[in-house]
């Protein structure tokens, strides 16, 4: 960078300034134009179309770099909160008849194999997995909480769901896996979609216990999802229906402008 000096005529100097400020003005107008273009664009699932495209791009980027080897940090039980925060009661704002509760599973396969009905006793008979981790809410808070239940992977291998062939689902045969699992509350008020890879993550649990006791009603009794690799919004309470599909199942907050993945 040399300390360059020049002699110019006043007219020349004015022309320079006029051009430079003109370009800055055009730039400002362009910035405003981009803003208008975004806020005037139609909303796609609750987000302005260009921003929705960016969110989907981010999900693709994340999908290519994310690794199942990455697990969330686990903590000793003593660190778990005794008073667990309750956020959101969509689909669970009424007491459930736990004795009569059954999990309806739509396997996505044709014929007799298509639907299963699973009781709590059947779930409790499977090996129990516990996890103590830092639950993260999309709002920005987090809390160390303690959950117990059936690891989803164990559940899927036992009931042979999640695969198209009816074999035990495994990441080694991705072509045999459905791309998504969908969950819904019994009343259908709340619903989420989870990519199969995240569902089969070893820390993803169908939880029936919190702090060593049966799930309270406001935490989704009798069975809820605990998926530490995603924000709390994906941790659906009181699972009524489970389904598998290659199509992205509808997702409550995705329809309201959030990204589908909510991956951490």
């Amino acid at each position: 960078m040399s300390e360059e000096e020049r002699q110019v005529s006043p007219a020349d100097w004015n022309r320079r300034k006029f051009m430079a400020f003109g370009v800055l003005g055009l730039f400002g107008a362009t910035v405003w134009g981009v803003r208008q273009w975004i806020v005037d664009s139609p909303k796609v699932d609750g987000a302005f179309a260009p921003l929705r495209s960016a969110l989907e791009f981010n999900e693709r980027v994340n999908g290519t770099i994310k690794s199942d080897d990455h697990s969330v940090k686990e903590f000793p039980k003593e660190l778990a909160a005794k008073k667990v925060r309750v956020n959101g009661n969509y689909g669970v704002d009424y007491p459930a008849d736990i004795a009569a509760w059954k999990l309806a599973v739509f396997t996505g396969r044709p014929g007799n194999d298509g639907q299963l009905s699973i009781t709590m006793d059947q779930l409790r008979a499977l090996p129990k997995t516990e996890i103590v981790y830092d639950f993260k809410c999309i709002e920005g808070w987090s809390q160390i909480t303690h959950w117990g239940g059936v690891r989803f992977k164990d559940f899927a291998e036992h009931f042979l769901v999640g695969s198209k062939s009816g074999a035990a689902p495994t990441n080694e045969k991705p072509e045999d896996l459905f791309k998504y699992m969908g969950l819904r509350t019994p009343d259908g008020e709340y619903y989420v979609g989870i990519d199969m890879k995240s569902a089969l993550h070893p820390q993803t649990i169908l939880a029936y216990e919190m702090n060593g006791a049966p799930l309270p009603m406001n935490q989704g009794a009798p069975l809820r999802l605990i998926i530490p690799t995603k924000y709390g919004v994906k941790n659906l309470k009181r699972i009524g229906i489970m389904m598998f599909s290659d199509e992205r199942p509808k997702d409550y907050w995705h329809e309201r402008g959030y990204d589908y993945d909510c991956a951490l």
């Binding site: 960078m1 040399s2 000096e5 020049r6 100097w13 730039f27």
Partner: peptide, 26 residues
């Protein structure tokens, strides 16, 4: 030096001005 002339000295390269003004709205 003719009185009519104005002396100007280069201060900020074009690239840096662009980075600066793009950064502002972003």
């Amino acid at each position: 030096m003719p009185d009519e002339k104005i002396t100007i000295r280069k201060k900020h390269p074009l690239a840096i001005r662009w980075f600066h003004w793009v950064n502002f709205p972003v």
